[in-house]
Design a protein around this nucleic acid. Structure first.
Lengths: 241, 241
DNA sequence: CGCAAAATTGAACCCAATCAATGTTCGTGG
DNA sequence: CCACGAACATTGATTGGGTTCAATTTTGCG
């Protein structure tokens, strides 16, 4: 693989991973077994990590950067998800030892931790606490896909964008101002639309007080924006207060 | 609940359930605990079983009949899945003890086995074999949603219909003839389209040798139909040979 | 036989993808 | 530091797939 680097796991990364829901409940010994078998890869932008149809060799964890999960069929490509630190992906395929249903490609330079699938399955078979964490992780993932299916089927592109702006503003501290952390074509694919349509939808949201300049989005009338967006806990995933 | 009946679990049903992947590996004692706590309900057509937003009281298993999973938002409804015997549903919500993301309604009169959520979680916490089966079930469910998301995003309605016809013919024994087991509006919602569009798409498939009369669909040129459908193991879910 | 539900057909409309042209930004090398 | 090119972004025009609304026709069933 040209341009890739491979290192053992740094102490700081190790701590980060240990805190993930998937790993925080397991025994030290088994965690050690997983991490010591793992590789940390430094990957350049636009590198394909996995291809749909292949059998899983590794469980992947995004430590840094972002990774697009997508699928192609008959000359068309659909973005299914964008993974950001710190998250595992393709856990279901690793557990079932079944072919990937998605491909993955880096959107930015990225650090990816790769744990051999055999090791994961072996620890999974031996460590009941780990097995329970895997259940919780899978259940949460399942629910996330269901939400994104609903988001896709029940909302227009403009509504998806409006809700994304509101959610991101909330994450960034309710400053009525959102700073994009990637380029707009990436945002477009995350929202399930073309870059052209993202432009048009941003222009349309100007009617509801959204001002967009470069990578900054200002919310001038959050009430109007919310009325348009119709946020829904059962799609957007926040806890109903 | 008007019009519903409630019985304890018959011996024949018990055997059926015991064979499900979710229950076949657990101990007799724990299986007994689950089943003896369960209710078997006979429900009429068009009865709402669960409503999105509620907390799960029971794990449900369709013993007979069929159940539509759907979701509504802003006055629109989207069908997400149709469950047929013998399958469990809303396992993820029960395990996480999180609100339902989908609602469920019977499409036909149905028998549903209901196991109290508390009992499921308690056995799950105690029986490692059951926990592992839950993992496998969840992983398979996760993959099924991903496939249906791909089916939705990468195919037109006519292509989804063509593939459904081919798959159903295969299930029914490759007789080049498919018999609908529900009405067309139900098939339409399962395929993610309106009844009007199902009609139009069936008419369109006549160009590829599909003859449809009432509830019978004849495949007169399966080669042409397959060329049109472009079946794909990573969407349709068969094992690559 | 007659009615109500289901299915079909047609027309208008909506949302989003595509194609094409142009403008903008940004990183790089001169 | 500026100039240039390539990728990114915007805007307009067109097309396509799908929904909705409305009007019939067909089916199934009491």
């Amino acid at each position: 693989m040209p341009g890739t680097g491979e290192k053992s796991v740094r102490q700081s990364d190790r701590k980060l991973i240990r805190k993930l829901p998937l790993f925080c409940d397991m025994s030290d010994a088994n965690f050690e077994k997983l991490v010591s078998a793992a590789y940390l890869q430094h990957l350049p932008q636009h590198m394909t990590l996995i291809s749909e149809g292949d059998l899983p060799d590794f469980l992947h964890i995004v430590i840094d950067g972002s990774v697009k999960m997508f699928s192609t069929h008959d000359g068309h490509e659909a973005t299914l998800d964008i993974m950001q630190p710190v998250t595992t992906f393709i856990l279901a395929a690793v557990i079932r030892n079944a072919v990937y249903l998605k491909s993955a490609r880096t959107l930015t330079p990225a650090q990816i931790l790769m744990i051999p699938a055999k090791t994961v399955r072996s620890v999974f078979g031996r460590d009941a606490d780990f097995a329970r964490s895997v259940v919780n992780e899978l259940a949460e993932r399942y629910r996330a896909v269901v939400r994104s299916l609903k988001n896709e089927k029940l909302r227009t592109g403009a509504e998806r964008l409006a809700n994304w702006i509101l959610q991101t503003d909330a994450l960034q501290g309710h400053h009525q101002r959102v700073e994009l952390m990637f380029d707009k074509r990436t945002l477009a694919s995350r929202l399930g639309m073309t870059p052209e349509n993202l432009s048009r939808n941003l222009a349309l949201l100007a009617n509801y007080g959204v001002r967009s300049v470069g990578r900054d989005i200002k919310i001038e009338d959050s009430l109007a924006l919310e009325r348009f967006a119709k946020p829904n806990a059962l799609i957007d995933g926040w806890e109903p207060k």
